[in-house]
Design a protein around this nucleic acid. Structure first.
Lengths: 211, 211
DNA sequence: TAGATTGTTAATCGATTAACAATC
DNA sequence: TAGATTGTTAATCGATTAACAATC
């Protein structure tokens, strides 16, 4: 049963729908039409209906969408009904910041280990999570089922450790290192390149001024 | 003289070109053809040529592109030949991580102030940059020319402080808060929604497994 | 039943890729 | 000059928007 491939653009919009629906839910809104949602989110109603219909008919003619139901369904589509074991590689400032971000935990992303090369950090903990040395990683991966590895370390380190992660059965990599990792096709990657984001910002600063 | 509007997709690719060219430069590569670059970057040669030609003819028939020249030109397009004054609002873990990230400084993004509401942080510094209380922000903005405000604080705080920033003449906002800010059209925004990025990752983990 | 709003098909728009003439 | 490779036009592909029949 070959499902039609869902485009990246659609997937990118899903978390945003999810956020808006979550807010509506908090405000005890029960139902919403694609038109109302369109107004709030600044996307066309047509796109909302088209996007949602990639996954099924969640609405009802003449009524719209039930907020709670749709919120939950999108949550399931995004895989937020599951839990994920996560490790962080690189206990620098950014790794530490992510380890401290409690909301991930609430959404089912459980951080169960932090790794670094700096011997001074050995045995220390961040929010109760132990920092271990990188050389213990293969052993750790063989005894734990890790879904996601978050890479918050420099380029060279990230490239060196990627094969170790793949060999250890890690399914997905959340990559903050400034490099495009070369990974087998069954390993999922999501890149967060902060400096590239900042460059887009500076591009736009200069464009806007020119107009 | 009405320039053709450059699409967002093109702009998003520019920093990646810049990164690859920088690496080639480090490896003392003098020239590169769109075909060679295509192989390395996994985009079509046609797209590379098309993208670059939005901004001018940087190459030469029969030769290709001079790496150093192209690197510098893309840098200029991205506005990296200028310097920017930046402040960080929110001295939590993420704000701290960004304040500590020295590479931004090297690229011309100078962090000259950090703001927070927590009185315990008053007077403290991060990498020599002073942490000030939010209520000093209007005064600070009137005496400093701030290009970019980085928002690393919760949603409610971000929404409350945005008008203050706009009023104070801030040109651009690098927004890490989980909200879409409502700003006048001349203020540039670049959103970094980490939890949405993580949701895309979890979506893909589940899709890949299903195949 | 009449009105509202979805689900879905068709039309449009834009972005990517292919092709090739221009030119170094 | 011949070969290589760009710059650019044309063709294709995919994503967004519009329209409307289906249906609650």
């Amino acid at each position: 049963m070959q499902e039609r491939e869902i485009s990246k653009a659609v997937i990118k919009r899903l978390p945003r729908y999810y956020r808006y629906l979550g807010e509506l839910l908090e405000h005890k809104v029960e139902r919403i039409s694609s038109n109302e949602l369109s107004d709030r989110m600044q996307v066309t109603a047509s796109q909302i209906r088209q996007d949602l219909n990639n996954f099924g008919g969640f609405g009802q003619q003449g009524y719209g969408y039930n907020v709670k139901y749709l919120y939950n369904e999108i949550g399931k589509i995004l895989g937020l009904d599951k839990t994920y074991n996560m490790i962080i590689i690189g206990a620098g400032h950014l790794g530490e910041a992510l380890a401290n971000y409690v909301k991930f935990e609430k959404r089912g992303f459980r951080i169960i280990g932090i790794f670094d090369t700096n011997p001074e950090l050995e045995g220390k903990t961040i929010r109760g999570i132990q920092i271990m040395m990188d050389d213990r990683l293969p052993e750790f991966l063989s005894s734990h089922d890790i879904d996601i590895a978050t890479l918050t370390l420099p380029k060279a380190g990230a490239e060196a450790i990627a094969p170790v992660l793949v060999k250890g059965g890690v399914k997905a990599i959340w990559n903050f290192a400034h490099t495009d990792l070369d990974l087998p096709p069954d390993v999922v990657v999501e890149n967060v390149h902060l400096s590239e984001s900042l460059m887009q910002l500076s591009y736009n600063i200069n464009r806007k001024n020119r107009k």
